[in-house]
């Protein structure tokens, strides 16, 4: 059965090993950027810059280490669906807390416990 094949293939092994090394180097470089970023560039937007690097690293891990790229598309679609949902949760909740109209009237939202 085509989908149940778990064959032993050494040529494939060498090729995949090469990918693993390349991705490791890529991830190490991105991690290095993580460390120097606050002192080099975008220091006023550290959060956004860090998040961006994080997503780049995550993409490498998911696509290559977790083999999503060579997986059947159905799993990719599922991942995309789950991530869109997460995005919606974040956007909506942050919109809510950001636009709360009585922010100044509660110590929980204005941060000063008196």
């Amino acid at each position: 059965m085509a989908t149940n094949e778990q064959t032993v293939d050494t040529a494939l092994y060498e090729r995949e090993k090469g990918t693993y090394h390349k991705i490791l180097i890529g991830l190490l470089i991105l991690t290095a950027i993580t460390f120097v970023q606050p002192h080099l560039f975008l220091a006023h937007a550290t959060f956004e810059a860090q998040l961006l690097i994080g997503f780049a690293k995550a993409w490498l891990i998911v696509a290559y280490y977790m083999h999503l790229k060579s997986e059947k598309p159905v799993i990719g679609i599922m991942v995309a669906f789950a991530l869109m949902l997460v995005l919606f949760f974040f956007v909506t909740t942050i919109i809510d807390v950001h636009h709360f109209q009585f922010t100044d009237e509660s110590y929980i939202t204005n941060g000063t416990l008196k």
């Binding site: 993580t34 970023q37 550290t46 860090q50 998040l51 690293k57 280490y65 977790m66």
Partner: peptide, 24 residues
């Protein structure tokens, strides 16, 4: 192996969110 990549993946976001946002 997938599980271990997931554990790593979570750390990829935990690390900057906690350690780096105030690094500057």
């Amino acid at each position: 192996a997938l599980y271990w990549d997931l554990v790593h993946l979570i750390w990829v976001f935990v690390f900057p969110y906690f350690y780096m946002i105030g690094a500057a």
